[in-house]
Every structure is written in structure tokens, then in C-alpha cells.
Simulated assay, not measured.
Amino acid sequence: MADPILTLSGVKTNIAQYHILQGVDLDVPRGQVTMLLGRNGVGKTTTLRSVIGLWRAHEGTILFDGEDITRRPTPAIARMGIGFVPEDMGIFSDLTVEENMTLAAVSGPVDSARLDWLFSVFPPLKTFWKGYAGTLSGGQKQMLCIARAMIEERKLYLIDEPTKGLAPAIISTMARALRELKAQGASILLVEQNFAVARALGDGAAVMDDGRIIWAGAMRELATDKDLQERLMGLSLEAS
């Protein structure tokens, strides 16, 4: 396996009285796309939010690029080079697209070449650059959410269900953008329910159930083994 950029060892996270993560062990190889799969409610989002520090792991260790980030605050983790795309988008509706993007550039002024690339993969952002983010369509808001994480080159991207609820044309745009990000050598941990997207983008896969990783391996192995899919998740990827 490639050198892991992210390693979770025995990570347990509680939310109020609920024990969500029950001891997650996960390696995310450097320069690859790792799909985090599983049924709803098994802990995928909690895993991402524990890595970025929004929800604090109370047990276990999270190593990023060789450094222990388990107890670090979210802003410090982000400045180390992790971009996060939350499921709920979290855009600032009363700010313009430009202002949303500017705030996301934590290292300084927005790089013009990087911005031009983002405009090429998400053309509506250029069209509505001076418009308020709250006036965008659902698909355009998702583009903005992903573009904010990509405005600077990050070492690792945590992306939570980027195609959820989107029309097929918008899903194609999202997949193309993520494919280009992957081609740049990015390391990505991606939660995705659209298995066609998972098959197309994933190098590796990890399947969660009941707050634990129950299987990890090559995405192509999971994508071509219907028996394995049904045993792990109770469904067939070919039907998705």
C-alpha cells in the first residue's frame, strides 16, 4: 500500500450519549482516492468530522502526514493542509461567491491560476462571482462548497457525499472536477452513496458498519464482487 497520509487507530467518538465510532482503524494512502462506504448512520460523516476536529475523538489516535492531530483545534488542522467539504455545504448565504471563496483561502490571496482552473470545472461560479451565494441553485451551491475546499492546493481532501440529491448533469460535473483533482495527485477521503461515482473515482475502499471499518481493499475488487458487496452492505453496486 502507498504511504498513508492519514491513519486512524482505534478512534472512538461519542456525540452526547451516543457512541458513534466504536474503534475505527483506517489508512488513507497518499495520492489516492479512498472511498468510505456503508449504509446510512454507520459513522462515515462522524469519521470525517473527527479527523477535521469538529467532533472530538475521545479515544484513539489520528495521524496526518506523520503528526498527531487528535487533540488539535479545527483551524490548526485546516492550516496543516486539509480541505473539508461538509454534507450540509455550510456556505455563507449572505456573502457573495467571491467572498465565500476568499474566506476559504487560509494561506493568503487567491491564486489566479488556481481560480481559473476552478472556473473551468465549475463555470457557474464565474457567472455568479459577484452574486450572493444564497441565490444559487442547489447544484451551484454544491459547486461552491467543493470549490472552496479546492481554492488552495491541500494535502488531503475530506469530502462528504458531494453528489447527494443532485441532477445527473451536475453529478457529471462534480465527478469530472474530482477526477481532475485526483489527476493532480491529491489524496482524497470521499464518502459517496452514488456507486457509479465510487467505481469511477476510487482507488481504494473502506466499508463501515456499526462505527467500525469491517473491510478495506481495492475499489475494483469491491466493484466486481457482487457477493462481497451484498455481504458487506446488503446491496449490489451493479444495481446502483
Rank of each mutant, 00 (worst) to 15 (best):
A16L: 14
A186C: 09
I69N: 11
I62T: 01
A167H: 00
S107D: 15
G185H: 06
R176G: 14
G131L: 08
A198M: 06
D94P: 00
F122Y: 12
L189G: 01
Q32M: 14
I52F: 02
C145D: 10
N40K: 05
R179S: 15
E230I: 02
K155M: 08
L54T: 07
I77F: 01
L181Q: 02
G185Q: 06
A198F: 08
Q142G: 10
K155Q: 13
L235C: 09
A183E: 15
D27L: 08
I159P: 01
V11Q: 00
W55R: 10
V85T: 05
D25G: 10
G90A: 14
D68Q: 05
R56V: 02
V85W: 01
A218T: 07
M208D: 12
D27I: 04
A2H: 14
I20T: 11
R49F: 02
M35I: 15
Q193W: 06
R39A: 15
Q184D: 15
T45E: 06
A113E: 13
T173E: 14
R71M: 06
I188S: 01
A149M: 01
L6E: 02
K44W: 11
L178C: 07
H19D: 15
N100C: 05
Y18Q: 14
R212S: 06
G66F: 05
G234D: 06
A2E: 14
F122L: 08
A2Y: 12
T127Y: 13
R154D: 01
E238G: 07
L201H: 05
T224P: 03
V191S: 13
W55V: 12
G134E: 10
P162W: 02
M143I: 02
G211N: 09
T47E: 12
T46R: 11
V106W: 05
I146A: 00
I188H: 04
T34D: 03
I77S: 01
T102P: 00
R212C: 04
L181R: 04
K226Q: 13
H19Q: 14
K44Y: 12
R72N: 14
S93V: 07
S93C: 04
G165H: 10
I15R: 12
I52Q: 00
A183G: 12
P109T: 00
C145M: 11
P86A: 03
L21R: 03
F84W: 08
A206G: 11
D160T: 03
P168I: 07
L21G: 04
R220V: 14
M1L: 08
I20C: 05
I170C: 04
K141A: 07
R114A: 10
M101V: 01
E180K: 11
D94V: 06
I20Y: 09
S137Q: 11
A218F: 08
A147W: 01
I15W: 11
A133Y: 04
P124G: 08
L222Q: 11
E221F: 10
Q184Y: 09
Q32S: 14
T96L: 04
L95I: 00
T74D: 09
R114K: 13
F128N: 13
G90C: 06
Q17F: 07
T127V: 13
I69Y: 08
A167R: 04
Y157A: 03
G83F: 01
E152P: 02
A133L: 03
L235Q: 05
G10H: 11
R39Y: 00
I146M: 08
